[in-house]
Measured scan of single mutants.
Amino acid sequence: VFVDDHLLEKVLELNAKGEKRLIKTWSRRSTIVPEMVGHTIAVYNGKQHVPVYITENMVGHKLGEFAP
């Protein structure tokens, strides 16, 4: 499973602090992992960042699938 390192670091850091804030990313190719559930990730679609709230059903899919 591929997840960009910088994105995973941000998610794990927020989980350690117990925070839930918006994470901006250009990494549409990253796979959604269970650690991301409950976070809102702003995924770049080529024009703007689209906020995507991550749920359990999204695990295993790519971030780009949810930012048309």
Rank of each mutant, 00 (worst) to 15 (best):
V1E: 13
F2G: 07
F2Q: 06
F2T: 04
V3L: 04
V3K: 03
D4A: 04
D4R: 01
D4Q: 04
D5A: 15
D5N: 15
D5Y: 15
H6E: 14
H6K: 14
H6L: 14
L7Q: 00
L7W: 01
L7C: 02
L7V: 02
L7H: 00
L8T: 02
L8S: 02
E9F: 11
E9I: 09
V11K: 00
V11E: 00
L12P: 00
L12S: 06
L12T: 09
L12G: 04
L12D: 04
E13S: 09
L14A: 09
L14R: 01
N15M: 02
N15Y: 02
A16L: 12
A16V: 08
A16S: 12
K17Q: 09
K17G: 05
K17C: 09
K17S: 11
G18F: 05
G18K: 07
E19S: 06
E19K: 07
E19T: 07
E19D: 07
K20Q: 05
K20T: 07
R21C: 13
L22T: 12
L22I: 15
L22Q: 07
L22M: 10
L22N: 04
I23S: 01
I23M: 04
I23V: 11
I23H: 01
K24H: 12
K24N: 07
T25G: 02
T25N: 00
T25R: 01
W26P: 06
W26I: 07
W26K: 15
W26L: 09
S27F: 04
S27P: 01
R28Y: 06
R28K: 06
R28H: 07
R29V: 13
R29S: 09
S30Q: 02
S30A: 03
S30N: 03
S30I: 03
I32N: 00
V33L: 13
V33Q: 05
V33K: 04
V33R: 04
V33G: 03
P34E: 12
P34H: 13
P34G: 13
P34K: 13
E35I: 15
E35D: 10
E35P: 14
M36P: 00
V37P: 02
G38T: 08
G38Q: 13
G38D: 12
G38N: 09
H39T: 01
H39F: 08
H39A: 02
H39V: 02
H39L: 03
H39R: 01
T40I: 09
I41R: 00
A42I: 02
A42G: 14
A42M: 04
V43R: 00
V43E: 00
Y44I: 06
Y44S: 05
Y44P: 06
Y44E: 02
Y44V: 04
N45A: 07
N45W: 08
N45Y: 07
N45F: 07
G46M: 12
G46I: 05
K47F: 09
K47D: 08
K47I: 15
Q48G: 13
H49D: 03
V50Y: 11
V50D: 12
V50W: 10
V50N: 14
V50K: 13
P51L: 08
P51Y: 04
P51R: 10
V52D: 00
V52Y: 04
V52N: 07
V52C: 10
Y53D: 11
Y53M: 12
Y53L: 13
Y53Q: 12
I54F: 02
I54L: 11
I54Y: 00
T55K: 13
E56L: 10
E56I: 11
N57Q: 13
N57H: 10
N57R: 09
V59H: 05
V59F: 13
V59T: 11
V59W: 07
V59N: 07
V59D: 04
G60V: 03
G60I: 03
G60N: 14
K62P: 08
K62L: 12
L63F: 07
L63R: 00
L63I: 06
G64K: 11
E65R: 13
E65V: 09
E65G: 09
E65L: 11
E65T: 10
E65P: 05
F66T: 04
F66C: 06
F66W: 10
A67S: 14
A67H: 04
P68N: 07
P68I: 08
P68A: 11
P68E: 09
P68H: 10
